[in-house]
């Protein structure tokens, strides 16, 4: 039960951060990615602000050991830069650059009820479902989970 409330709160804080920083707006994200246009560095400061908190917080949390409401920290352990990581990230970058939505903002923007935003969300979920289908077919061995 506590983990459900924690997730609800974390999701809410994350959504609030996306709202305040205007990252729910694809036009704002395209403004950052468009270095040759009227460049808007805002997204870099969003990441800087998040890392300013999370970099030190991560070190403190790991030093403390177990989390408060769960038996252990579930942190990715893989260290190799493999083909899936490279190809998947490049595929994501292509879609991100085409539209300006990444998963967090795409979900947060659902409440706008705008046709364009909901269409993107539906297509994104379909893309995730395609991955699940391929993953189920191709890996009979236990799937390796990363972040």
């Amino acid at each position: 039960m506590p983990t459900i409330l924690v997730a609800l709160g974390a999701g809410f804080l994350f959504g609030l951060g996306l709202t305040i920083s205007q990252m729910v707006n694809p036009a704002k994200v395209i403004g950052f990615l468009d270095i040759a246009g009227r460049w808007d560095p805002s997204l870099a400061l969003v990441m800087a602000g998040a890392l300013a908190v999370f970099l030190p917080a991560y070190r403190i949390i790991v030093k403390r050991g177990a989390p408060l409401f769960a038996p252990a920290l579930l942190i990715p352990t893989r260290r190799d830069i493999d083909g899936r990581l490279v190809a998947g990230s490049a595929t994501f970058g292509l879609g991100w650059g085409l539209v300006g939505f990444c998963p967090g903002p795409a979900i947060a923007a659902a409440g706008s009820l705008q046709t364009d935003a909901l269409t993107f969300l539906g297509a994104m979920i379909a893309g995730m479902a395609v991955y699940e289908a391929i993953d189920r077919l191709s890996t009979r061995r236990p799937a390796s989970q990363a972040g």
């Binding site: 998947g88 939505f101 998963p103 979920i125 699940e132």
Partner: peptide
């Protein structure tokens, strides 16, 4: 774009 973002983020972890 949505299909690429959905598939790519899952494939790239």
């Amino acid at each position: 774009g949505g299909l690429l973002v959905g598939f790519g983020t899952r494939f790239g972890g």
